[in-house]
């Protein structure tokens, strides 16, 4: 240690104040992480904690917050019929879009995980929609899903199916949002799955093949267990993302009979249209706890179905 200090030019040594290298390293460490500590305090910790306070107030920004206890929650749970509508819509959307999204992402990855030419082109084709911003893709799908003369209904008619009302129908507006999400979002989950598939050692699938496993058995008994950590990750992320669906519902305008009034859209209206920040904070807090609960449940359940290679080898 002294050797490294002596190697420095003599001018850098301050007489009477000699820091050990360890102290100096600590100080530099704190200095370097300081921006992030500030960010955690100002943009994470403070907002999270003050959410509890704001959710107990009536606050319209123009006048100071006014403490009203649990009234916001009372209104939310028993006096705002649209609140439960938005909950039901969001749950419907999450329940369908999460498994479909994972299935399509994994399916595309499996299709691409073959030794044939042109994979790069196909991969780009699947991923390209992910580059289109939500506003543009929503506008495009409003054209494609036009009930009378949209391309999708023309396609349905061509293969002998009944055309449906999509965004103009209370029944089909939610499936329309799911189709839109699948188009734009499958590419990235496909890439994550594809990377995980490439990690699976070929020796394992070959060994299963020698043991006489057919391709379905190889998929369920070798590929899926080895992919399970990735499935867990994609599952958690897509649950968190789907519950907070906003842009497509917002741009298409809540749908007929509020059929796609999603939770975030309802919250947005209270916060930024009616400037009822207290009520919106209460809504945000409830959603936060629901998401934490779901995430913990999924992670807890993972010990039953997620296979980590190290534990599997014992």
């Amino acid at each position: 240690m002294t050797a490294s200090l002596q190697a420095r030019p003599a001018g850098l040594k301050k007489p009477g104040f000699q820091m050990t290298r360890r102290t100096r390293e600590s100080l530099t460490g704190y200095l370097f992480v300081m921006p992030w500590i500030i960010s955690l305090l100002v943009f994470t910790a403070y907002p999270m904690l003050s959410s509890f306070f704001f959710s107990m107030t009536e606050y319209t920004i123009l006048t100071p917050p006014n403490w009203i206890g649990f009234q916001n929650f009372d209104v939310m749970f028993s006096k705002d019929p649209l609140y439960w509508k938005s909950v039901a819509n969001t749950v419907y959307y999450v329940v369908l879009s999460v498994p479909l999204g994972l299935g399509v992402g994994l399916g595309l990855a499996l299709l691409l995980n073959q030794k044939i030419g042109g994979i790069g082109i196909y991969r780009t084709a699947f991923y390209l929609p992910g580059l289109v911003p939500a506003v543009a893709s929503t506008l495009l799908w409003m054209v494609l899903l036009d009930p009378r003369l949209g391309l999708v209904n023309a396609g349905l008619k061509a293969i002998g199916l009944e055309p449906v009302g999509w965004l103009k129908s209370a029944t089909w507006a939610k499936p329309a949002l799911i189709v839109m999400a699948l188009w734009g979002g499958s590419g990235s989950s496909m890439l994550i799955f594809l990377a995980a598939l490439k990690e699976i050692p070929q020796s394992l699938t070959e060994a299963a093949m020698i043991d006489g496993a057919n391709s379905w058995q190889r998929f369920w008994s070798v590929t899926v267990p080895l992919l399970s950590p990735t499935i867990l990750f994609n599952l958690v992320m897509s649950i968190i993302g789907s519950f907070q669906i906003f842009a497509s519902a917002f741009i298409t305008g809540a749908g007929p009979l509020n059929s796609i009034l999603m939770y975030m859209l309802h919250l947005y209206r209270y916060a930024f249209r009616y400037f009822n920040m207290g009520y919106a904070s209460a809504m945000a807090l409830v959603m936060f706890f629901v998401l934490v609960l779901f995430t913990l449940l999924v992670i807890r359940s993972s010990s039953y179905w997620v296979h980590y290679e190290t534990s599997g080898r014992q």
């Binding site: 907002p47 958690v236 907070q244 975030m264 916060a271 807090l285 995430t295």
Partner: peptide, 10 residues
């Protein structure tokens, strides 16, 4: 993993 919704309004 923190959902953005909880920090949005404050």
């Amino acid at each position: 993993m923190l959902p953005g919704i909880v920090t949005l309004i404050p």
